[in-house]
Design a protein around this nucleic acid. Sequence first.
DNA 1: CGGACCATCGCCCGTTCGGCTAGTTTTTCG
DNA 2: CGAAAAACTAGCCGAACGGGCGATGGTCCG
Lengths: 221, 221
Amino acid sequence: MDGDPEVQGRGVPTTPVTRVFVVAPTPMARAGLRSMLDSAEGTGVEAVGGAASLSTSDPALADADVLLVLGEDLLDEAAPSFPGDDHQSVLLLAEDEGAVSKLRAHSPRGWGILPPDAPQEELEAAVVAVARGLVVLPDALAGRLFGNLQDFGEPPEPLTSRESEVLGLIGRGLSNRMIATELHISEHTVKFHISSLFAKLGVGNRAEAVSRGARYGLISL
Amino acid sequence: MDGDPEVQGRGVPTTPVTRVFVVAPTPMARAGLRSMLDSAEGTGVEAVGGAASLSTSDPALADADVLLVLGEDLLDEAAPSFPGDDHQSVLLLAEDEGAVSKLRAHSPRGWGILPPDAPQEELEAAVVAVARGLVVLPDALAGRLFGNLQDFGEPPEPLTSRESEVLGLIGRGLSNRMIATELHISEHTVKFHISSLFAKLGVGNRAEAVSRGARYGLISL
DNA sequence: CGGACCATCGCCCGTTCGGCTAGTTTTTCG
DNA sequence: CGAAAAACTAGCCGAACGGGCGATGGTCCG
């Protein structure tokens, strides 16, 4: 279980110092965040710089492991010159969950979202975690994101391969005739499969079928 | 920004020791995980016990802040006597993302999933983060979970409140007439709103509208 | 072998949908 | 205040939808 070359002694901290660059619109916010980070000793977190926007030429920005960004707005502006290319993580302080997709689009490494009023302990833990490439979310946000997705388990009855196929094409907006052409079958057969999968999903029309299908995870959206 | 009564000196570690109880099927796995946790000094992580199953009477179990569980199976068995009531977090080591809903059903506090072969640094960081009530996921898993949901950002044009309302009802399978009754408006008005949101979403029928609406995150499914 | 299941095809019929044009009222905002 | 946007209403019509009836081949399995 340990062929690793890590023969380090106990005195050497295993946390190799996490450098954080603070991006916040006001000097006060920057100072507050930096002090919260610097007062954390054991965690090896260190604030290396700060700026009011992401499009800065501060050399400390390039050195940072984690970008701590206050506010969703600061993420939009700097979309082009976003430095979080491949080795930097981003921790965003924002309430809104709409920023999830923006974050994911930017930083392929670790990322996270935290409410702006998060206590210092959560902030430290989140910084360290995203620096390790993990994804961190507050419990409430995770509940909202996942809760609607797959709280329900399997569909009541499993769909046949043909039915799943038809359901997928329905979700892409195809009419019965187009589905028939696509699958090289008759339009009547398409209607038959649709009736079957409607019965299995317990729905009465295509819109609801797509909705339920997506919730059960058997549609690719 | 700091009316808090935390006037602690710098010598006092802000991380108040995170107690971890390791649950793994084999003694070797337990020993390996405990040694990985205990060799982390600065983080304040401490392994306080271990067992082969969750349904144990080890007093250390009640003392733990975090339950580190190896394998999805161990979660299923102990569903009834699951101790993670309200103050304990659960970090699950598993590949499969199917355990997300199970985890969420159990522990209302912090939780997380990590691949079993995660390096020590990720393990430490994840333990601390979930102990603080956060949700932690590996990047790849988060990508898969969110990817289907809202990879694309905003819709081309934002929907009006009425249009969003109508779209939601469409996703629940309601006909135009039922929507009209539900919203106390005319059926013609419903059709008008539908035409508008179709144009904004770039779709031609309700099924595709639900599909796109779900992908853009503006439908509750 | 016979039954169960899946997939295929056909017709009829009432309902719903989606687009079209053409208005009014309310709200929002410059 | 006046303009613009949003919300609301109306009728018409072709196309699509969804359910009902029945029928024909496959395949798998007891």
